[in-house]
Amino acid sequence: MDLDALMRCVGTTSCIVTQLTSGMIIGMLLFLIASGVTLIFGVLNVINFAHGSLYMIGAYAAWTFYQLTGSYFVSALGAAVAVGVLGVLFERFLMSKVYGSNVLMQLLVCYAVVLISDDLIKIIWGPVSLSMGMPVEFRLPPLRFFGGVVPPFYIFMIVAAMAIGLLLWLVIARTRFGNIVRAAAVNGPMVSALGIRVNLYYAAVFGIGSALAGAAGALAAPVRSLTPGMGFSILIESFIVTVIGGMGSIVGAFVASIIIGLTRSFGSIGFPLFVDGVMFLIMALVLIFKPSGLFGRPHNK
């Protein structure tokens, strides 16, 4: 524990700015992944344990598109769309077969997909790590605010993640598509009885959730080395975010992501050896005092 260092940090604007933005960067990437997990759970009532693999495939897809096109924006968009399509196929051919099954059966299917996708990555891209490098558009000196340092790419990352999150919320809360999806989440058979092909909406939701993971992978690709299995560690953190925010709540995922991001950011200064411990502690406290999560509803299905 080095609480003196933490106090010194919060006493200087440069440190506060740097650590706040650092927390937002960590949080926003987590948010993109966790929002996919929570969306799929909220509507389909399944926990997609293979979500980390979709993030990994998004990163590799972005790397490949970048090699082919040289444009980062095209690569990021391409990766999100490609993973979205893959998600739809995953849902139609695998996950839809285990809806309503025991959670262990769902876990087994997802775990199989994780193992298969890890091995396919090794076969296609090789076992050695890959690095995309910073796209030319963002090879700029860091910006300074009140003495704090903020890289331009991270500003883009935060803005992009927030924009995607806002768009997602608008689609779910303000459109006809969103109304049907929310209705299907509450009572799928009733929506089906109204002549709406609920299965198509389920597939679409899974596709959107997957595309979010793909977008997160594409945003991470310039700054993280790409390796088979890279989705596992971030999946654990995204589950922590989902549990804290409340299963099925996008707003909850947003708030919880920022909480975890700031914990990691300021924790690295004040309690560097206990950051993970604090993250799990927050989760435990939420589970004890509000088991449904900060923004989750006790019985949303």
Partner: peptide
């Protein structure tokens, strides 16, 4: 570790004259 953001900013905030690192392989690249 996949993300070094908080570590980088921690080193940055230290305003040191020099840094030593024993990171290696893909970790060092990241």
């Amino acid at each position: 570790q996949p993300d070094y953001t908080e570590v980088v900013t921690k080193v940055l905030n230290a305003k040191a004259d020099a840094m030593y690192s024993a990171l290696w392989g893909g970790d060092l690249v990241a």
